[in-house]
Amino acid sequence: MSTDVAAQLFPADEHGELEPEIALVRSAPLTDFDGPEARAVLGRTEILITSWGCPPVSAAVLDASPRLKAIVHAGGSVKHHLSDAVWDRGIIVTSAVAANALPVAEYTLATILLANKRAIDLSRLLGRTHRFDAAADLDRTIGNYGKRIGLVGASTIGRRVIELLRPFDLEVVVADPYLSPSEAALLGVTPLGLDELVATSDVVSLHAPALPETQHLMDNRLIRMMKPGATLINTARGSLVDQQALTDRLVTGDVYAVLDVTDPWIPLPGDRLYDLPNVFLTPHIAGSLGTELRRLAATVVDEAKRIADGRAPQHAVIIDDLKRIA
């Protein structure tokens, strides 16, 4: 992983917490797998802990790692750095995706509740006009009681959002081709087709992975189907949304958007999204940041200790799931 990520996840003064189950082969992180020093480290490594900034774990890297039995990822997706050779050789792979899901779910919960209270746009109205008239500036649709929340994707994050929404007087519906009626019943949600969910929900929140099949999942047709007053929340990936079509609908002023991710990652200077009063933009902050990174570290340390002790990991990544997960 990169040195700055390592400093936040695994401060040097806390390396002692890994003992006695885990002995670090090297205190400083590897930032690449090239050169004799890196190859010497790999030759002694049984468990490789990775995170953001990890270069590809190729067949050549594995050839230099004859003792390697597990890769434990302190992050979400493992697709960006693990090659097919990892799976072919039967190496255990685990990920802290469940730990990273919690702050995203918390962000989603917060923005759902604020969106239905119209807190974001009313705050901007107050700052712009320096006045507030409840009779003129509010309507009968404001509030969270009885609102329909549509989640697109019963992913790890989507399921954490479902858990967090349970205490509230909200109706939760989910569109996911892999969610069976029995699973939906256990989760306490109503399964719907994507069209119906988008057309009837007060909030549409995206929790699907970025796959070829989900490119512009929210296309012009679906965006036009959103009912007036609805809010689209995207904490997944910008590629899930046809951003031009969304912007065109937002310009009309009859829908709202909370966008933690866009395409490109940061909108270009001059993009209309910056100036629209019905848009709330954040720079990809929903996932683990600051103190939340320590949750990732604790998760992977626990996983590494379990594997070192001969126990099964709790968060194994299954190769058959890679085609439908982030």
Rank of each mutant, 00 (worst) to 15 (best):
D4F: 12
D4L: 14
A7K: 12
Q8F: 03
Q8I: 05
A12I: 14
H15E: 11
G16R: 09
E17G: 13
P20R: 06
E21Y: 11
S27E: 14
L30W: 01
L30K: 01
D32V: 03
G35F: 03
E37T: 14
E37Q: 11
A38E: 08
A40Y: 07
A40E: 13
V41R: 08
L42W: 06
G43W: 10
G43Y: 10
R44I: 01
T50F: 06
S51I: 02
W52K: 11
L62I: 10
D63K: 12
D63Q: 12
A64W: 08
R67L: 14
L68C: 08
A70Q: 05
G75H: 01
G75A: 14
G75I: 00
G76I: 00
V78G: 07
H81C: 14
R89P: 02
G90C: 11
G90M: 07
I92C: 14
V93T: 07
S95N: 04
A96M: 02
A98Q: 14
A99E: 09
N100G: 13
E106H: 02
T111N: 13
T111D: 04
I112E: 02
I112F: 00
N116R: 13
A119I: 15
D121L: 10
L122C: 09
A135H: 15
L138E: 04
G143K: 06
G143R: 04
G153T: 00
G153N: 02
G153C: 10
I157H: 00
R159G: 10
R160L: 00
I162Q: 02
E163I: 03
F168L: 13
F168V: 01
D169A: 14
V172Q: 01
P177A: 13
L179G: 04
L179R: 02
S182L: 12
G193I: 07
D195I: 06
L197T: 01
L197K: 02
V198E: 01
D202V: 04
D202N: 08
V204M: 07
S205P: 00
H207Q: 10
D219E: 04
I223Y: 00
M226C: 11
K227F: 09
A230I: 00
T231N: 03
A236T: 06
A236Q: 06
S239G: 11
D242A: 11
Q243T: 07
T247V: 09
D248K: 06
T252I: 13
T252G: 14
G253F: 01
Y256K: 11
D260H: 01
T262P: 02
D263G: 03
P267S: 05
L273K: 05
P277S: 07
F280H: 10
P283I: 08
P283G: 07
I285M: 09
G287N: 05
G287E: 00
G290M: 05
R294P: 05
T299Q: 07
V300K: 00
V300D: 03
V301N: 01
A304L: 00
K305Q: 12
G310K: 07
R311K: 15
P313M: 05
H315A: 11
H315D: 13
V317Q: 03
K323N: 15
R324H: 14
I325V: 15
